[in-house]
Design a protein around this nucleic acid. Sequence first.
DNA 1: TCAAAAGTGTTATCCTTACACCCATGT
DNA 2: ACATGGGTGTAAGGATAACACTTTTGA
Lengths: 313, 313
Amino acid sequence: MSGMGTAVVIGLSAVVMAIRDGEAVVLTVRRPGEDLLGLPFGPFDPEGHRTFELALRAFVREQTRFDPGYVEQLYTFGDKGRDAPVADMGAGAARVISVGYLGLAPAALAGSAASGWQPWTRFFPYEDWRDGRPAALGTIETALRSWATTADRLARARLLFALDGAPWNEERVLERYELLYEAGLVREAARDRGEVQPVVLPPTGEPMISDHRRILATALSRLRGKLKYRPVVFELMPEAFTLSTLQRAVEAIAGVPLHKQNFRRALERTDLVEGLGRMDAGTGGRPAELFRFRRELLAARPVGGMSLPLLRE
Amino acid sequence: MSGMGTAVVIGLSAVVMAIRDGEAVVLTVRRPGEDLLGLPFGPFDPEGHRTFELALRAFVREQTRFDPGYVEQLYTFGDKGRDAPVADMGAGAARVISVGYLGLAPAALAGSAASGWQPWTRFFPYEDWRDGRPAALGTIETALRSWATTADRLARARLLFALDGAPWNEERVLERYELLYEAGLVREAARDRGEVQPVVLPPTGEPMISDHRRILATALSRLRGKLKYRPVVFELMPEAFTLSTLQRAVEAIAGVPLHKQNFRRALERTDLVEGLGRMDAGTGGRPAELFRFRRELLAARPVGGMSLPLLRE
DNA sequence: TCAAAAGTGTTATCCTTACACCCATGT
DNA sequence: ACATGGGTGTAAGGATAACACTTTTGA
């Protein structure tokens, strides 16, 4: 085999999610001299780090003074050309391969000066259907239709963006972002091709540095899917919580409104939570009972996630 | 950041699956001077290859004269110490990071001399419950119980290996392999630690080079899970097939026996297949109708996978 | 005619969905 | 008393699982 001349650098990117005031937020970092936000990111040191996960925890802690609890690998991004990051390492440019990770934190603590928690809705406004069809989709739909000059393009746009009565599938965050990218409707598209930025774009969300918005989309897709078959929401909850808080957390991630009773009934059947008898100091209505996640079940049997009983408008 | 002295090499590994005579088989390669089987594997050339996927297709074709159809990324393995492969590249040893891919082929064609298709059951005999509880589990259970000296170990073993009446969960292939590894019950465990091999081991399957059996376990886990929510089986089927062939393919992958009628009824509801009117030249009984996968649906709406209506013994 | 595999019918049960209603607190 | 959010009951419809049975071929 040949061609081992170009150096390769492994980078690690982290999408750390948390719930703050009922909103789902992501940990971001603003680098000096950079006007776009990015994800916590750091090189993987093959000498110092025994595993990716240890390396990731270390540099997230370093950059943000914060330790994610639950961590899982997402995807390894290696495409050239497409906003591929390039590292400058003395001996010339190196190709950067970035391994994306998803982290879940039980609380959005204050971090360092350069880092901060941002609602993901800032980067994907059209992904939030909690209050019905997002307004952003109006303009996006128009733009997509004028891009969709072939039957195939139109079919994909319809399917992914719930046009013409197609149902919304909240899991397909990444595919939607990639379609917008392909259609030139996100800032990253023109930037990566070195083209001049279009003056106006539909409200497709705030761009990020490098391929970080793609990594964030991958994380949201994965998390939305995983919600349904693993009890991952609880990694985002404090020890004690009310059922409404839990429901709002699920809604904040999935970006869809849920049916209260059916959500509770489904939850009850799983036996995943247990009432504590204690009550919450109500925020205005009747006080709610506090519950806890029966974490011990994880060791005792295979355990599923939450069903998402939609609330239709 | 520091410590960029050690070189990093990106390797690509492929788990290519196909169905042959109703059995699920994997593409393997035997390297010269090596007595264990391995997966098709090759270095990623950062100069020559634009994307991982293109690189993967190229070297699988080269090593096996064979092109996988459907391809998806699995996981990136980077742990040190644990049977981590090491590349010798002139300037000394380099750390190898391997990106695993899953490929599905519609037929198991003959490949080159060095490569061949092997049933996965060879590597994971205890994962095949199609004819009831596999015999291998008897000895494995005994070995696990004597290893499980703590409550936690026992709970995990029970849960994963369906001991004491726990239900079998076919998706947890990787976790089971990792538990066996931790318990020292697979050959790779002692090998990676540089220890002397135990003389006898329970029938936990044939070892592979490097961490390839772990990659294979990851692939099986992923495929078994994906079966249920995406119509991936059809990537393994020829253009026309009978419902029994389809059912046998699903069973061969999932490793569990399915209930015939319920399998068909569930399939019918999905509208995923369409009768062709033509009949199969029967293999001994009444001729079966041939069906085809309505691939056009993929573009038309989000489409789910197969339900696995178990047939209890 | 008999074995082998294909294919059909039917019922009980459980889960999901959708509806409407009552309860406990703060202001 | 009333607004606000917490919490419950129940019935219709659909999916699943479990049962046993008929049909069409080759040997």
